[in-house]
Amino acid sequence: MAIRVVVVGAGYTGLAAAKLVARWTDAAVTLINAEDRFVERVRLHQLAAGQQLRDLPLAGLLAGTGVHLVVDRVTGIDAEEKAVRLENSARAVRYDMLIYALGSAADMDSVPGVAEHAYTVATADEAVRLRERIDDSSVVAVVGGGLTGIEAAAELAEAHPDLKVRLVNGGELGAGLSRRGRDYLRRTFDRLGVEVVEQARVSEVRADGLVLADGGHIGADTVVWATGFTVPGLAGEAGLAVDEEGRLVVDEMLRSVSHPEVTGVGDAAAVRLRSGQELRMACATGLPSAQHAARAIADRLAGRAPRPIRFRYLNQCISLGRRDALVQFVHADDSPREAVLTGRKAALYKEAIVRGTILFERYPAIPASL
Rank of each mutant, 00 (worst) to 15 (best):
A48I: 02
Q328N: 09
V194F: 02
E204G: 09
L359V: 15
V8P: 07
L177R: 00
R129A: 12
E361V: 11
R129N: 13
I318Q: 06
V211C: 13
A124C: 12
L31I: 02
G9W: 01
N88D: 14
T25F: 04
G264E: 05
E351Q: 13
P260Y: 09
L287Y: 10
I358T: 13
L53M: 06
I358H: 03
L279P: 07
V224W: 01
A200T: 01
T188V: 12
I358C: 08
G233I: 03
Q291E: 09
A270R: 13
G228N: 08
S137L: 07
L314G: 13
R274E: 15
A346G: 05
R186D: 08
F189G: 00
E172V: 15
C283Y: 04
V139D: 10
D109E: 15
E361F: 09
S335T: 14
Y12K: 11
D136N: 14
L185S: 05
I353F: 13
D107H: 07
A127H: 02
A294W: 01
V84K: 01
P161I: 01
T357S: 12
Q51N: 13
V202A: 05
R43F: 07
R85C: 11
L61W: 01
V257A: 05
R362G: 09
R201T: 15
L248H: 01
R54H: 14
V211P: 10
A154W: 02
V39D: 06
V330C: 02
Y313Q: 08
I309T: 02
D36K: 14
G236E: 07
A368L: 02
T148C: 09
T65Q: 02
